[in-house]
């Protein structure tokens, strides 16, 4: 054993280590800057899809806003309740449960005839630029059908069916609201899971006009208005509108609507919720 070499090696390594250690220790004291670790912690929890549903520039912006308590912790739609709880744990606060929200398209696109041929960019927003005819279909309130919402959805929850109407997959939908922003006809809306009765039409055309061009359009017949036991649905400007303050989601209006404009999603949603819960149970066991 070459003791000399060993001791030199040991000594020099120890020396380097000591010198660097001292320098770093001094440096960390000398150049100390306080940073809030929580920002990074929160950012790590956020899904990182930068969808903007929270209203901040990306997940990092939202994380910073949470830590500086500019924003509440429940704004992240994609992350959902789980995410909110994790953030709350870091921030040392409790949050109320977040009910899931889903998007819904308020048009069923019932066989509306075309007014003209269109050749150009297939984007609903392009179709409503002045001079582009305002959508190919005769109904100037309903879905244009170029799938802008489907392309805008960051979660692939919207697909266009063969009738060129958007179909929203509620399994994938996180209620982020991108589709609401992009729809030039304001057809998409985000609503709580428990709210299940909707009028799927936005046409303010006169009943006769709507009747002629659309088989799923509100014709302002007022049957729903008469049927409603809670005075919660009214025909305003040729369109049935539900007042959710009064609506008890009984679904009577759904049954009387001759055009199938009003729908009730309770059954489907309940079934799906049950499936989700059993799946979650299985996963834990």
């Amino acid at each position: 054993m070459d003791w000399k070499a060993l001791s030199i090696a040991l000594g020099s390594m120890a020396g380097i280590g000591a010198v660097l250690g001292i320098v770093l220790a001094w440096g960390s004291k000398r150049f100390f800057v306080k940073v809030d670790e929580r920002v990074e912690q929160v950012e790590a929890i956020l899904p990182g899809v930068n969808c903007g549903a929270c209203g901040f520039p990306g997940c990092s912006g939202y994380a910073e806003a949470i830590v500086t308590s500019e924003a509440t912790m429940t704004l992240c739609s994609p992350g959902g309740a789980e995410c909110a709880h994790d953030i709350a744990r870091i921030m040392g606060a409790e949050v109320e449960a977040v009910e899931p929200k889903y998007a819904l398209t308020a048009c069923q696109g019932g066989n509306v005839p075309n007014r003209f041929d269109y050749s150009g960019v297939h984007d609903c927003r392009a179709a409503v630029v002045p001079g582009m005819g305002g959508g190919i279909k005769h109904c100037t309130y309903g879905c244009i059908g170029y799938g802008t919402c489907a392309r805008a959805c960051p979660f692939g929850a919207i697909t266009m069916n063969d009738k060129q109407m958007p179909v929203i997959d509620e399994e994938k939908c996180t209620g982020c609201g991108r589709c609401v922003e992009v729809c030039p006809r304001d057809l998409n809306r985000i609503d709580r899971e428990s709210r299940t009765v909707f009028v799927l039409c936005t046409s303010h055309d006169k009943g006769a006009v709507t009747n002629k061009i659309c088989d799923h359009g509100c014709i302002a017949c007022k049957k729903c208005e008469q049927e409603c036991p809670f005075d919660a649905i009214h025909v305003i400007d040729n369109l049935a509108v539900i007042d959710y303050e009064k609506c008890k989601l009984c679904g009577k209006c759904v049954d009387v609507c001759p055009k199938g404009v009003i729908v009730n999603l309770r059954k489907e949603r309940r079934a799906r919720k049950q499936a989700r819960e059993t799946a979650a149970k299985e996963a834990t066991t």
């Binding site: 990182g48 994609p78 979660f155 692939g156 994938k172 996180t174």
Partner: peptide, 8 residues
Amino acid sequence: NLCPGCDK
């Protein structure tokens, strides 16, 4: 594995 149900 970020988003629920995403297979992309």
